[in-house]
Design a protein around this nucleic acid. Structure first.
Lengths: 190, 190, 190, 190
DNA sequence: AATGAATGAGGTTTCATTCAT
DNA sequence: TATGAATGAAACCTCATTCAT
C-alpha cells in the first residue's frame, strides 16, 4: 500500500519540471493559471512549489527570464566581425521572428506582459535594449537616420509587441506584418 | 460612533458619486482597487454598489466609456467644412493630447487597458478607429502616404499608448514626445 | 414629465393586488419568489409591500389563509340536514378534489407547506381538522370503523398531500388516485 | 487569545469530523444551520470546509447518504432463506423503527427532506423502494392484498414519515403509532 | 398612503501561502 | 527535500427590511 515514494531529484531538475509545467499551462490559459494547476501538471505537492518559488510572482519572473533567453539564443544579433551587417534587414527579421515567437506563446505573453503581474514588475527592458542596440549600430553604419535610439526603441517595441496580439485577435497576418515593416523602415530610414 | 445619516439622491447622482469615487481610487491604485474600497470612498453601503453595478466589471465598463467620451469631447476631430485640414498637425496634436490625458490618469489606464480586465473585454477600439479615420482623411487630402490604414492605425496606437507609460516610468517627457512625433510623421509621410 | 401619480386605492384593494401578484408568482416559481419579484408583478413600490405585510412570512400566512378558504368554500362538507350522507364517497370526493386543487397550485404548495417557511409555522391544521370531522361523522353514521380520528386524520392527510406531488413528479395520475382511494377505503372500512 | 494549533488529520478523519459536527447542529437547528456554524463547531477554518465539500449541498448529500445507510444497516430487511417471513410484522417493525429513528433526528430530517434543499434534489427514493419491495414480497407470500405496490408504497411512506413529525409536534406517541399500524395493516390486508 | 433609494448583515466561494508531519 | 492538509483573509453578491422624501 506504500504510495510511490516521490523520487528525489536534484534541485535544479525539480525546479525545471515545475517551470516547464507552468509554461505549458500559461501557454493555453494565460493569467488564469493558479498554483493548484501548476502543481497538478508537474506532479508535485503544493508545498514543493513554494520550496522553489517563495511566491507565485517568483515563478513568473523565472518564466520571463527563460522566455527572454530563449529568444535571444534563437535569434542572436549579428556582429560586424563577419563583415558588414545589413541593419534594416536585421531589424525586420527580428520583428518577424518576434511575431512568430509570441504568436506561438500567446497565453504566456498575456500572463507576463499584459496582466496585473506586469504592473508589479517593470518589463520588456530586454527587448527594448536589444532594439536600441540595433538602432545605434545601424546608425553608426549609416543605415538609419538620426532618431533618438532609446525612446524610439521603446515606442517601436510597443508596435512590434502589438502585432502578434492583433494577429491573435483575428487581423490578417500578412497585412499586419506589411504595416509593421513599413512602419519600421520609414521610421528608421536615413 | 454616530453613523452618517442616510442620504437619498437621485439615481443618476448616486451612480455618479460611485463612479467618481472609483475613478479617484483607480487613478492612484490601479487594478488593486476593490468594491470594498470604492464603497468606503463613496460613503455608501456595499449593497448600494451592486444596486448600480451588478458586477465589478460593469463599473469598469462605465469608467471606460466615460474616459473615452471625455477625450473625444475634449479633442474632437476637425472637419473639412471650415476649410482644408492640416492632417499631419492633427495627428501630432491628438497624440500629444493623448499623452497628457493618459499621464494624468495613469492608474485608470492600467486598470482598464493593461490588466486582466482588459483581457476579458476587447478594448481600445475607439482610439484605433479615430486614428484610422484620420489616416484615411489625410490620405484623401494627399497629406499621407499609401499605408494600409487599419493595421497601421493599430500599430501606431500601440506606440502612442506606450508614450505616457514611458513617461510615468521615468523617461524624459520631451524625448519621448519627440520620438513619437518623428515616428508618426515618417510613417505617414507621402 | 410628471410620472403617473400612483392611484390611491382602498387599503383592502391594494393589499389584494399584492396577494394576487404573489400567488401568480408562487404558482410558477415556488419558494424562489422574492419580495422584489412580487412588487414588480404587482406594480407597487417596495415600501408599499411592507406597509401591508410587516414581514415576508406575513404575506405567506395570508396566502395560506386564502388558499384554505378557497378550498373550503369550493368543496364544503355536506350536512345531515338534507338526508343521510355517504361518508365514504365524501372522503373520496374530497381527496380527489384536493389532488386537482393542489396540482393546479404546485409551486404555492411547495412554498407554503414544504419549505423552510413551513417549519416556522405549524401547518395543515385545517385540512386535518376537516378530515377528522369527516371521520367522526362517518363513524357516527356507522360508515367507518373504530379508528382513532385525530391521529388517523393526520396520517391520511399526509398520504393525500403526497398524491399531487407524486403526480407532479411524473407518476401516473390514475394509478396514484386508485392507490389513494384504496388506502382511504380500507383504512376507514367498518 | 492563543489559537489552537493546527491539527493535521487523514482526510477521511477530517471529513468525518466536519460531517459529524454538521449532524450535531442540524439535529438541533435544522435548515437554519450555515457553513459558518459548522466550521465553528468542527473547529476548522472556513477554507477547510470547502476543501471537503465544494458546495453546501454536497455536505447535505453526504449527511443524507449516511443517514440512509445507517438506517438500512440497523434495520435490514429479512430474507426468505431462514424460513418464511411474517411480512405484516416486518412492515410494522420497520415503521416503528423509522419513527424512533426519525424522532431522534428531528432537525436533520427537516433540513434534508422538508426544506428548500429537498426541492433541489429528489429524495426519499430509498425508503419508497424498500417499502415497495416489502409489499411485493408480502404479496408473493400471500400476506398482502392486490394493491399497486409502487404508488401505494409512496403514499404509505408519506404517512409513515408524518408520524415522527406528529410526535415531535406534541401528539401522543402511542396513539400515532397505533393509528399508523392500523392504517398499514388494513391497507395491505389480503 | 406611497415611494424607491439605501442599508448591511449574512452567505458562499477562492486561493496564495503556511506548517505539522 | 517533500508532502498535502489546513488556513483565513478577502472577494463578490443577495435580499429582507428601513426610512427620508
Amino acid at each position: 500500500m506504500a504510495k510511490p515514494p516521490r523520487r528525489r531529484l536534484r534541485p535544479e531538475a525539480r525546479r525545471l519540471e515545475i517551470v516547464e509545467a507552468a509554461e505549458r499551462l500559461l501557454q493555453v490559459h494565460g493569467s488564469r493559471v493558479r498554483v493548484e494547476d501548476v502543481v497538478r501538471e508537474a506532479g508535485v505537492a503544493k508545498g514543493t512549489f513554494f520550496l522553489y518559488f517563495p511566491t507565485w510572482d517568483d515563478l513568473l519572473d523565472t518564466v520571463r527570464q527563460r522566455l527572454v533567453s530563449e529568444f535571444d539564443t534563437a535569434h542572436p544579433l549579428p556582429t560586424e566581425v563577419d563583415g558588414p551587417v545589413d541593419w534594416p534587414s536585421v531589424i525586420e527579421a527580428q520583428a518577424g521572428a518576434f511575431i512568430d515567437f509570441a504568436s506561438a506563446r500567446q497565453g504566456i505573453g498575456q500572463a507576463l506582459f499584459h496582466s496585473d503581474f506586469a504592473e508589479r514588475r517593470t518589463m520588456a527592458d530586454n527587448a527594448i535594449l536589444r532594439l536600441s542596440a540595433i538602432i545605434r549600430a545601424g546608425q553608426e553604419a549609416g543605415a538609419f537616420g538620426p532618431v533618438d535610439p532609446e525612446p524610439t526603441a521603446r515606442l517601436l517595441f510597443a508596435a512590434i509587441d502589438e502585432a502578434p496580439r492583433a494577429v491573435a485577435g483575428g487581423e490578417d497576418r500578412a497585412a499586419i506584418l506589411a504595416a509593421l515593416q513599413t512602419l519600421l523602415r520609414r521610421t528608421l530610414a536615413p
